[in-house]
Computed example of a mutant assay.
Amino acid sequence: MYGTGLGHSYRTAAMLRALSSRGHRAVASSWGEGLRYLRSSDIPCVEVPELDVLWGEEGKMRFRDTLRNMAAPFARFLHQLEVEGALIDRISPAMVLADSRATPLLAAKRRGLRSALVINQARLMAPRALGALRPAIEVPPAQMLGLLWSSADVVIVPDLPPPYTIASEQLGAIPQIRGKLKFVGLPIEGCQDVEPAWRPPHRPFALFTISGPEETKRPMLLKSVAAAKILARRGWSALISAARVGSSGNPRAVDEGVYICDWCNCIDQYMASADVIVARAGHTTIGRAIYYGRPSVLIPIPFHGEQESNALSAQRMGVARAILRSDLMSASELADEVEAAASIDRGKLELASAVARSVDFAELSATAVEEIL
């Protein structure tokens, strides 16, 4: 499983729990946040070498630097492939399930094992700031990734079927996998039976949930706190989650009407009750907002092409407002965006939510895996 960010972790854990309920056992492999989350969820997980893009201290994705320095990632790719192969040889699985990673697929193919790919970002997305250069940058890697992804026997897409597919732009450009796609809905498990550890003191209530690589969090957290304080002066209450796995889950007050937690236990409770959600534009976070019918302000990591695409897709659906350059936005402007999002058309939110709730992720994803066992 891809280890950067928590979206991959949430859906992998949900899928493995669904398979466990049908009598299947699994061992996962990951790194970083993904590794910590799966282990905290009591899922056996082996650490593998990290393979990721480069991040800047100012919270931006270093897209050009990543492309210029491909030798080191390629070496880590080969090392990761070796480690995955050794793990497969040790545990002798019946099949391999890979979330957004090619090395498990290649290791499985080499050993004659069937495999399933879980993915929503099927290709590299260049940032919008590159303008006319984007196709030249995106097409060659897309062709290579298409060959890698096509080695899977089935491609499980944790997304809604068209026209509500969040990752429609990322999936549409890979013809090699088009006939293998299975849309299984959103991995929303919820925790409605758990008593909330905190309730907003008054409404309207804004939830800021800032996930992603640690390097990208600090500037956005600082701006979120400043925007939350402005909203509090306008009559709002706000909770800010730093999404740090394993940290304290108890919200603490930082100002009147403004609270923060390093890790909010059962974030779904707060998302379901929020009047507006402010978040990065990760696929799983957007899916949760849609599922609960909540308007959102989506703020992609600067120069992160996939998140930009996700945010614009949600904005086209009419369920969110997208801000592509948060590094150029003031805290006051962010507060204004939150208040504007509160007026998003409820009809569109309710329709998208109804579609999301009609698709059973656990049932469909487990069935898709069992079909190739």
Rank of each mutant, 00 (worst) to 15 (best):
F63T: 01
V157P: 12
L364K: 15
S309F: 05
S237C: 09
A75M: 09
Q269T: 11
I43V: 04
W31I: 07
P200S: 11
P141C: 03
A26W: 00
M15W: 00
R316D: 11
S332T: 15
S313F: 03
A314I: 06
S41T: 05
K109N: 04
S115Q: 03
L124Q: 05
V155I: 15
P104I: 09
A340K: 15
N250E: 12
I277E: 01
E363D: 14
R280T: 03
A232C: 09
R111L: 03
S241D: 12
P300R: 11
A71D: 09
E57T: 03
K217T: 06
M220D: 03
W55L: 11
P200Y: 06
P187G: 14
A341F: 06
K223C: 03
V154R: 15
H8V: 06
P162S: 10
L221Y: 10
P93A: 03
A238W: 03
V359P: 10
C261H: 02
I91F: 12
I344G: 06
G172R: 07
R244F: 10
A136N: 08
A94V: 14
I91Y: 08
L16S: 12
E363V: 13
A129Q: 02
R22F: 01
Y259E: 01
L113T: 03
E306T: 01
P162I: 13
V118S: 06
L106Q: 14
W263Q: 11
R218D: 10
V83N: 11
E363N: 13
D65M: 05
R178M: 12
L130F: 05
P162L: 09
S20Q: 11
P219E: 00
V53C: 02
S296T: 10
A86I: 01
P104D: 01
A362P: 07
T12L: 11
E371W: 01
M70P: 08
F205W: 04
I230H: 11
A331F: 03
Q307P: 00
R39S: 07
R244D: 12
L207A: 10
Y37H: 01
F74L: 14
D336F: 01
I372M: 04
S353E: 02
A352Y: 00
G282T: 02
T12Y: 00
